[in-house]
Design a protein around this nucleic acid. Structure first.
Length: 270
DNA sequence: AAATTCTCCTGAAGGC
DNA sequence: TGCCTTCAGGAGAATT
């Protein structure tokens, strides 16, 4: 399930292949993604040149001379660069062709999205309300502490709220809270400033390490070059329910918070 | 306003 | 071996 490290890894993987390249054809085989794929994707993109490939939260932005494609991989989406004549599989929904190569979106569960805007993409409704990037200086102890004031919500849910900070999905929320020694169910408003400073550092460290390793791969995510990431081998909490805590050896507890699988150490996390 | 629940979808895993 | 059921999950929308 692509989280921010996977999306960033994908961005870095595809950018060299399509930046400065002209889109020669667009094929939309399945327009029914999370939202209908807008007609402009097929209508306006052919002939346009991709000027930059950027990322905001887990959205990828393909900036072209005609407008910007806003892509989201949902939880089973992947992008690959392929020879244009490779026959598409059943879940290969959209191709952007660049001469003899193409950028192909595969998304079996269709939770992803392909959107279009001719305005500043950062003002798009999907991007406008988002919190700071987790690896930016704007995401710091003060920011998290202030966002938590008066909130009864579980700190894990706060961390996964895109209006507070973007890009911290379920896997990395579990990991960061484990590293920071904070119980995922603890009320956000009842955590000290200094502990939030530690949590921010844990989030940054975890995400940076995952990007360094090319992202976590679970189940159906493949990198743009088809190779899996290796961060899954580094996971200390997620997916380890019942297994011993690496710090104290007690069995990790698995539960659910806000419909999400949550794993923590009842001894080390308070 | 804040918190919780619902929703989309299908591959994978588990049960019998 | 194979069919049927259950589950996971990003994040916006709906509901409480």
């Amino acid at each position: 399930m692509p989280e921010l490290p996977e999306v960033e890894t994908t961005r870095r993987g595809i950018a060299p292949h399509i930046t400065g390249q002209r889109i020669t054809a667009v094929r939309v085989r399945q327009p029914r993604l999370r939202w209908p794929v807008p007609d402009e994707i097929a209508g306006r993109l052919p002939g346009a040149v991709v000027e930059r490939v950027e990322r905001r939260a887990k959205y990828l932005l393909l900036r072209t001379g005609a407008g910007t494609v806003i892509l989201h991989l949902g939880m089973s989406g992947s992008l690959r660069i392929l020879p244009a004549d490779v026959p598409p599989g059943p879940h290969d929904h959209v191709d952007l062709a660049f001469g003899d190569r193409c950028l192909r979106l595969r998304d079996p569960r269709r939770f992803g999205a392909v959107l279009w805007t001719e305005q500043d993409p950062l003002t798009h409704p999907r991007l406008r309300e988002l919190g700071p990037e987790p690896l930016s200086e704007q995401f710091n102890g003060d920011h998290l502490y202030r966002a938590a004031r008066g909130r009864q919500i579980a700190v894990k849910s706060l961390l996964m709220d895109g209006k507070v900070v973007v890009g911290v999905g379920n896997i990395y929320a579990n990991e960061a809270l484990f590293k920071a020694g904070i119980h995922p169910s603890r009320a956000a408003g009842r955590i000290s400033w200094s502990r939030y400073v530690g949590l921010v550092e844990a989030v940054k460290q975890t995400l940076a390490a995952a990007i360094e390793l090319g992202g976590t791969t679970l189940r159906d995510f493949l990198h743009d070059d088809g190779k899996p990431g290796y961060f899954r081998n580094e996971l200390l909490a997620y997916g380890r329910g019942g297994e011993p805590c690496v710090r104290c050896g007690r069995a990790l507890i698995e539960t659910r918070i806000g419909q999400r699988s949550t794993v923590y150490c009842g001894h080390c996390q308070r």
